[in-house]
Computed example of a mutant assay.
Amino acid sequence: MLAIQVHEGGELRHEAVQDPVAAPGEVVVELRAAALNRRDLLVAGGTYPFSLPLIPGSDGAGVRRDTGEEVVIYPALRWGPHEEAFGADFQVLGGPRNGTYAELVAVPEANVFAKPARLSWEEAAAFPLAALTAYRALFSRGGLRGGETVLVLGAGSGVSTFAVQLAAQAGARVLVTSSSADKIEKSVALGAEGGVNYATEDWVAAVKGLGGADLVVDSIGSTWPQSLDCLRPGGRVVVFGATGGTEATIPVRPFYFGQWSLLGTMMGSPRDFAGLLAALDSGTWRPVIDSVSPLAEAARAVATMASGQHFGKLVLSCS
């Protein structure tokens, strides 16, 4: 088969590799589409010390070779027995195990679900990891309820586009931040009430002026102090990324005076994925696709993701 492999130095090569073989309890999926995630940047950049060469990619949709069923892949491997957090054997497809930047992928049978009928191949490939992350952050960890205000930092990322739509569907008031007026406008079209341009104004003061937030979804990391400062009394910040930095310092007294909660999250359990599929079935929202590229042009798509100029998901056509 043809696949994209990460080699030493982060080089992405489109090359012929051996077809995957399904182990007991596994199936081979003929991929129609795969989607990019920021995790792929970390894999290619060496942040995760996986053995190379390696096929990256966590998201994919295609056809089961053994049954002919159209399926979408749940990208969390061996979540473990507890809903609160994944277990010691947890992995994500696409490192250290070969992932979906390929024509074929072998995965546990438990990780394939029926492709949502109303989604295209590209849309089906685009939603699992990012939408699952957004779903768990909002509901399983963040406890979002209808009527609350949620602030989503960094409009335009795959996770943020899902978070806006899922929160709006749940009856929440949604605000976003971005340095791009265009991305704020596009987020409003997805269901946000409005947004704050952090490049031109004090975004914390602006959010407070809009009444503050009950829940902040923060993928930046270095913004923990500001995210907490946006909260109403008893509010929550849910964190799942560190795109802006891996360290933050917060003032202690305001934290406990405000009776705030700071919660970590990552990916989602099989129960979260079932909840996400139910939310998809009951709603009209769909993945936002920025662009679709041939598998052979994965390196260019990864560079686009690194630039942050896209809005929504970047997808690869695998067949």
Rank of each mutant, 00 (worst) to 15 (best):
L144C: 09
Y198S: 10
A114K: 12
S120L: 07
P251Y: 09
N197G: 00
A88R: 14
A126Y: 02
K313Y: 02
S317R: 15
E297Q: 14
S140F: 00
V21Q: 10
E30C: 09
D19A: 15
A172P: 03
M267N: 11
G46L: 08
E148V: 10
M305I: 08
G258E: 09
E123Q: 15
A303G: 02
G147N: 11
A155L: 10
F86Q: 01
L31E: 10
A124W: 12
S219L: 11
G99E: 01
S58L: 11
A248I: 10
T200N: 03
N98A: 13
A110C: 09
F50C: 13
I220P: 00
A134Q: 04
P96Y: 06
I184Y: 03
A23H: 01
E11R: 14
R271T: 14
S51V: 11
A168N: 13
E148Q: 15
S178H: 08
S160E: 11
L175M: 13
G99F: 03
I184H: 00
E70D: 15
G221H: 04
E109P: 05
S319V: 15
A306F: 06
T177Q: 05
V239M: 07
V72K: 02
K186W: 08
E103V: 05
R300C: 05
F90E: 06
D182L: 13
H82K: 14
S261P: 00
A130L: 09
F50M: 09
N197L: 04
S307R: 10
A102H: 03
L314V: 12
C318L: 12
G68E: 12
V238Y: 04
V29I: 14
C230P: 01
N37P: 02
E103H: 14
G191K: 07
A189V: 05
A35G: 15
A181R: 12
G212W: 03
R271E: 14
A206C: 04
S178A: 13
L262P: 04
E26Q: 15
A205R: 09
A298W: 02
V105D: 02
A88S: 14
P108F: 09
T67A: 13
A278S: 12
I73E: 11
G147C: 09
V63K: 10
I55Q: 03
Q5P: 03
G275P: 02
T100R: 09
V92K: 00
S160N: 08
A33E: 10
A298V: 00
S58M: 13
R64Y: 10
S227I: 10
F273I: 06
R300T: 13
A299D: 13
E8L: 06
R38W: 12
V216M: 06
E84V: 12
G143F: 04
E8N: 09
L2G: 07
F50N: 15
S157I: 10
